[in-house]
Amino acid sequence: MAYALMIHPTDNVAVVTEAVRPGEDVLYEDANGGQVCLKAAGDVPVYHKIALRDIAPGEQVLKYGKTIGVATAPIAKGEHVHCHNIESPERKELI
């Protein structure tokens, strides 16, 4: 059993607090304070991100309740989320 931190209630990824092996159960606290168990779909190194639900290509990846990237491939629930399947969102002119 491993643990993950869901930082914001709207996030679709969480940060694992120890290295996770494929098939391992990962426990995190959801937006309502309930304990949720998730099965890891692959290796997730310590402090890396795990998908809390399926994320479609082009969909926003949310951490801190904000967009940290966009999925470049289908990401299954429990999968490692990193540079291989997300990239920076397209930049917007600010002014």
Partner: peptide
Amino acid sequence: VRLGNPTPGNKEGGLSTLEEKSLG
């Protein structure tokens, strides 16, 4: 700027994008 930031060490640690790094 995103091609130099995050650094290799940031990425190995688990930061995927500059936006993720900034929010931290």
